[in-house]
Design a protein around this nucleic acid. Structure first.
Length: 939
RNA sequence: GCGCAUGUGGUGAAAUUGGUAGACACGUCAGACUUAGGAUCUGAUGCCGCAAGGUGUGGGGGUUCGAGUCCCUCCAUGCGCACCA
């Protein structure tokens, strides 16, 4: 039996090499100091039950190509993968099915790894990390303890051991740090305090701290959530309503790092929109805090002391435009300053405010509501009486919870003043038209005493200086960002290494880490909003006290995992400094935008903290961030009316849309939608009202409906998930890899569409035929390569190198296609061309490259080859036909040598008949010779 | 409302510093070889026009010998933030 068909059998080739690579541990890397390191990282996935979809690998493929490329370039490349395996979904699943999260997680990870392996990634699996692994979370707990034992010293502008704070207090007592971080006790008082009180003081400084505070409580999930996990008043995961609740919680004092997180953005290579999102989240604003005294009056003003209202403003220049003050309804002073006349109205208003949920408040932003307190404040400069109001539009959580209202300059203040007939003072002359506020900073101030005639921009500084010098207030920087909630009333997370004793948090000794997550029978929440761990009394009660029963949030483990990859099996430290120094920062980090304000900010904070403590030597984790665009799925909808499918002749109104799974039967031969299918989807309750047009097709008895497709994020519930396995099975991993790159720029979102995949597959077959003839076998020739083929090769080397270096992964694919097309045309089968080509291609299509590399006689792996050297001499053409443009319009061509001198070109051009025909007898003003591009004659 | 990003053929998209716009691929059309073709190969394909030619990168304006690229302005789409004082 002869005729071993030598066609491109991707299935066998890929299986074979994947097995061999695995066997030989070819992707394992060590800290080889003789080579420069390069660290390429993907955001590690949460191992969901759904497995991988086509959107996942997009980033992984790009990072894989980059890693393989850098490796060919001689770098020692760290390219690890792991799993963010703690988290809510596994626990929700456990609640429903009773299966232990550890079991489902394990199973899901196996599926993920299997899928990843089939795509041929070069991950060093010996460095795999899993956040739910005790050997890993031991160090998450350890870092938490370090945070607990540290405080942020504004003087040194870094985190320090809490001991430095203690000794400071022992020696000097009073500590002046920033506005909101003062301890005003003397050393004697401090020493006189009992331990509990001392601990309470320290708790106000620890970077991981516990406190009673308003938290986002999500009843549906039975836990609290961090601000970034709440979207529009509902939980990001599951969409359950979220309410404010006072509870004892753990927090991360990320606000102390606000400024450094902001400054750090200057030195990292993130996209502008990503930086902007982070800046937005941090929300720094500079302004002033200003005191308004209240007029003395008959109304109760608290015991003895006169009430002072502190307002926060970013526009102190508008101080003379203040017509009233507004307090948040929750403001502490509200009860104290309300006059008897107004008391009942205020109480009614407060009742009304309380009845409204966060969601209602958000939804009805435009509505103007408020109530007068009866109190008046004194304008600090003019001495005028200013009414004090309360209103919903002032938030208690921002600034001081009180504002000075300047209706002529702020639209909300304007609306409020108009609504309640409060007279408006104009301080910007003609810039204010009386119909709406003008928030300009460029107007010249009037009616403004010492600020008259000054441009607002300049007046800001002048006003603050005056305010400060008169002791009426001070400069103040404000942040929108709040400290991050760090505890969850959940099971499937890292337990806190904390024991509560006499209301004091006691840390577990490091020798007792990891504090392993105990086994539980069921995942029902404990009493009083506590997590499932609270049900395990055997576990919670220890001789030293009661264990903390909440667990750490999902972002705990992911805030430092990139460091662990450098030294994943270290048992004595989270990673040795020697190794983190070697691998250093992540050179390129690839992942989605959805982590803009969560994971990325927390990682940056943890890195800065570990840097402060001297445990690592860099304070930004990621040098460059690439945000892969989302690959959206196509959803298909059918129109229905009263539960029936809308037919061609019916009028199209009151139409509902039913989500339908894409399938050939339905969309291709759309004669009718079967009753069974319809019922199935009606039962799923997936009624939706999308905004697109309906496309009617056919007529009469043949009428059918195709409802246009819509691109959305892929999700199981939307029936629009495409699974990479199918494509890999049908076309092979190499085709799949190249196709995902070929789709378009990595950072762009795009709908998933397989219709172009054939083209890529055809390319690989065409490539194969350069090396192999189905009958004759290997047809590679030896000897000198011809000049034309060499030009093609070197052009490709240059293009591919340039493209990958600028992360343009899609254009390099085209370069390969052009190359193979041209070599096919040239009938080039020369080894000295075709071997380097395989090395070039190996990052994109490693399997076929490896197979051919061996078939043409190599015994080593293409993975360990060296990137072909570019010889520039093949890039230049000795003579070239240049387009000649006359006044910018191309009219003819001239053939000259590439390195012709400018005056030589001019002579040739002026002797050229066609050129002369175009310019006639006019003298050209100048002749521009754009090297390698064109010649332009300006007449 | 504010901020950021993006607008190029029937489609996905190229054009790296301003220099022949539409590479490459899909699709479509025509053809070759075939018992067959969902294999392979060749050619055509922005639009108008038989053609010469004209026109063309969301609209308008500007800078330049020359603009998809730079500037101004308007429009559309996507994402983010949103009573943040």
């Amino acid at each position: 039996m002869k005729a071993i068909s030598m066609e491109y059998n991707y299935r066998d080739i890929e299986n074979k090499w994947q097995a061999l690579w695995k066997e030989s541990d070819i992707y394992q890397v060590t800290e080889d100091k003789s080579r420069k390191s390069f660290y390429v990282l993907d955001m590690f996935p949460y191992p969901s039950g759904a497995g991988l979809h086509v959107g996942h690998p997009l980033g992984y493929i790009a990072s894989d190509i980059l890693s393989r490329y850098k490796r060919l370039k001689g770098y020692n490349v760290l390219h690890p993968m792991g799993f963010d395996s703690f988290g809510l979904p596994a626990e929700q699943y456990a609640l429903e099915t009773g299966q232990h999260p550890a079991v489902t997680t394990e199973k899901n990870i196996a599926t993920f790894k299997d899928q990843l392996e089939k795509i041929g990634f070069c991950f060093d699996w010996s460095r795999e990390v899993r956040t739910s692994d005790p050997d890993y979370y031991k160090w998450t707990q350890w870092i938490f303890l370090q945070l607990f034992k540290s405080w942020y010293n504004n003087k040194s502008d870094k985190a320090e051991s809490i001991d430095t704070l203690v000794s400071e207090l022992n020696e000097h007592g009073t500590l002046r740090l920033t506005d909101n971080k003062n301890i005003e006790i003397d050393a004697a008082q401090w020493k006189a305090m009992n331990e509990k009180d001392q601990q309470d003081v320290l708790m106000n400084f620890r970077l991981a701290y516990s406190s009673y505070g308003e938290v986002n409580w999500c009843e549906g999930l039975g836990t609290v959530l961090a601000n970034d996990e709440v979207v529009n008043g509902v939980s990001e995961r599951g969409g359950f309503p979220v309410e404010k609740k006072k509870m004892r919680q753990w927090f991360l004092r990320i606000t102390d790092y606000a400024d450094r997180l902001l400054q750090g953005l200057e030195k990292v290579d993130f996209s502008e929109s990503m930086k902007e999102m982070q800046r937005n989240w941090i929300g720094k604003s500079e302004g002033a805090e200003l005191d308004f005294r209240l007029t003395p009056g008959p109304s109760p003003r608290g015991e003895g002391g006169e009430a002072i209202i502190k307002v926060y403003t970013t526009r102190p220049d508008t101080i003379f435009g203040v017509d009233f003050l507004v307090l948040a309804p929750e403001h502490d002073l509200v009860q104290q300053i309300t006059t008897e006349d107004q008391r009942s109205s205020i109480d009614d208003y407060l009742k009304y405010v309380k009845s409204r949920s966060d969601r209602e408040r958000l939804a009805e932003v435009k509505q103007v509501t408020g109530c007068f307190t009866g109190a008046y404040a004194i304008h600090p400069f003019s001495g005028n009486k200013i009414p004090v109001w309360i209103a919903e539009y002032v938030l208690s959580g921002y600034g001081t919870g009180a504002i000075m209202a300047v209706p002529c300059g702020d639209q909300r203040d304007f609306d409020f003043a108009t609504h309640f007939n409060i007279p408006i003072t104009n301080i910007i002359g003609e810039a204010y038209n009386g119909k709406e506020a003008n928030p300009t900073k460029d107007a010249i101030l009037q009616n403004s005493d010492f600020l008259n005639g000054i441009v607002m921009k300049k007046a800001i500084g002048i006003a603050v200086d005056k305010i400060e010098s008169l002791g009426l207030g001070k400069r103040k920087v404000n942040y929108k960002m709040r400290d991050a909630g760090f505890s969850r009333q959940r099971y499937w997370g890292e337990p806190f290494p904390i024991i509560w004793k006499d209301e004091m948090a006691v840390t577990l000794p490091e020798s007792e880490l990891p504090l392993e997550l105990p086994f539980v029978e069921n995942y029902k929440p404990g009493k009083e909003g506590k997590g499932p761990l609270a049900n395990l009394t055997d576990w919670t009660n220890t001789p030293q006290g009661t264990r903390e029963t909440s667990t750490m949030p999902g972002y705990a483990g992911s805030s430092w995992y990139f460091l662990r990859y450098a030294d994943p099996h270290n048992n004595t430290a989270f990673a040795s400094k020697e190794k983190t120094d070697y691998w250093n920062q992540v050179d390129v980090y690839i992942g989605g935008t959805e982590h803009a304000v969560g994971h990325l900010l927390y990682s940056r904070m943890w890195t800065k903290f570990l840097f402060d403590t001297g445990l690592i030597s860099f304070d930004e984790p990621f040098r460059k961030l690439i945000n892969q665009g989302m690959i959206t799925g196509k959803s298909y909808f059918f129109a229905t009316q009263n539960g029936k499918i809308v037919s061609y002749n019916e009028p199209a109104k009151d139409i509902n849309f039913i989500r339908f799974k894409y399938g050939h039967k339905v969309v291709d031969s759309t004669r009718k939608l079967t009753r069974k299918n319809l019922e199935l989807f009606l039962q799923d309750g997936l009624h939706e009202k999308p905004k697109f047009d309906i496309a009617w097709q056919g007529s009469g008895d043949d009428a059918f409906i195709i409802v246009k497709e819509e691109s959305e994020k892929m999700s199981k519930s939307k029936f629009n998930v495409d699974n990479p396995d199918d494509l890999v099975a049908q076309y092979g991993a190499d085709t799949f890899r190249m196709y995902e790159m070929f789709l378009g720029p990595i950072e762009q979102s795009k709908p998933w569409d397989t219709k172009g995949i054939e083209g890529v597959h055809r390319f690989l077959k065409k490539l194969w035929r350069l090396y192999i003839d189905e009958q004759k076998g290997v047809i590679v020739t030896h000897g000198e390569a011809d000049n034309e083929s060499l030009k093609v090769l070197h052009k490709t080397i240059k293009k591919v190198e340039d493209d990958i270096e600028r992360y343009s992964f899609n254009t390099a694919v085209s370069a390969f296609m052009v190359c193979v097309n041209e070599l096919t045309d040239l009938k080039c089968h020369n080894q000295s061309i075709l071997e380097p080509l395989l090395i070039l291609l190996a990052p994109y299509a490693p399997h076929i490259a490896e197979e051919l590399y061996h078939l043409i006689g190599n015994s080593t792996s293409v993975i360990n080859a060296s990137f072909p050297k570019l010889d520039e001499k093949y890039l230049v053409e000795s003579e070239k036909e240049y387009p000649v443009s006359i006044n910018g319009k191309v009219r003819t061509t001239i053939t000259i040598s590439l390195d012709a001198l400018q005056d030589e070109v001019e002579t040739i051009a002026l002797n050229n008949e066609t050129v002369m025909k175009w310019i006639g007898d006019k003298k050209p003003k100048k002749i521009i010779y754009v090297k390698n591009k064109m010649i332009n004659v300006v007449v």
